[in-house]
């Protein structure tokens, strides 16, 4: 399993996508913005590039008779996405902290705070559960799954960004006391991770049933 993940990171995915989290993370330097959008660039740049290159590079040809479990093909690809998401989150946090240090935490839209990153984890969870199981229905076509995942994540993002800008009670929950933010962080992070694990399980099961 470990060698498959190494192969995924070293051979299948272009090195550029390990630098992109830093470049996109720098978007947190914008003084006031819809900061959840930073994570959407991952969905719209990295994901289609990586999944397109699987086909273009003959990634499945390479794996078709390696002595590996069929299930692990899905596992390694899902882990690779988790790792990239983790990198985006990591640099998001780093640059987010710098933003707060320079500009302070107030923002018309969702502030950069603990709750924000919890919601970020949940956003990744929503993306994973919408995109991955759809993709592994064929392990070839990523267009429709990506459109579907874009719609679900946009609705999700709209609810939070719009809600926080418009309603005081949302601001109280998500931008209120540290205690309130912490509760949001814990709940959304657990939900996000739960959805991601579910996405992994469904992807593995679908991988067993398809023709490569």
């Amino acid at each position: 399993m470990r060698n498959l993940v190494y192969k995924e990171l070293g051979l299948s995915i272009n090195k550029f996508f390990y630098i992109l989290p830093i470049i996109l993370g720098a978007l947190f330097f914008i003084p006031g913005w819809i900061f959840l959008l930073v994570f959407y660039y991952f969905f719209w740049i990295t994901v289609p590039q990586v999944y397109g290159s699987y086909l273009a590079q003959g990634d499945y040809n390479f794996m078709s008779v390696l002595p590996i479990k069929r299930k692990d093909i899905a596992t390694s690809k899902v882990y690779a996405i988790f790792i990239l998401e983790g990198l985006h989150m990591l640099f998001g946090v780093i640059f987010g902290l710098i933003h707060v240090w320079i500009f302070g935490s107030w923002n018309f839209f969702f502030d950069i705070n603990l709750a924000f990153f919890g919601v970020g984890f949940l956003l990744f969870g929503v993306f994973n559960i919408s995109f991955l199981p759809q993709y592994f229905k064929t392990s070839h076509f990523f267009g429709k799954p990506l459109i579907f995942a874009s719609i679900t994540t946009l609705i999700f993002g709209f609810v939070f960004e719009f809600g926080v800008a418009k309603y005081q009670f949302m601001r109280n929950v998500f931008e209120g006391s540290i205690r309130s933010q912490s509760i949001v962080f814990v709940i959304t992070t657990i939900l996000g991770i739960g959805l991601s694990i579910l996405a992994l399980k469904i992807s593995q099961r679908r991988m067993m049933e398809i023709d490569l």
Partner: peptide
């Protein structure tokens, strides 16, 4: 050893591909 008509990783060097291939 299976050789399908389709090649893989056209832009990678033999060295790189072998490095990962042999780990299996």
């Amino acid at each position: 050893g299976y050789v399908s008509g389709n090649m893989f990783y056209p832009k990678k060097t033999l060295k790189e591909v072998t490095k990962y291939y042999k780990s299996f």
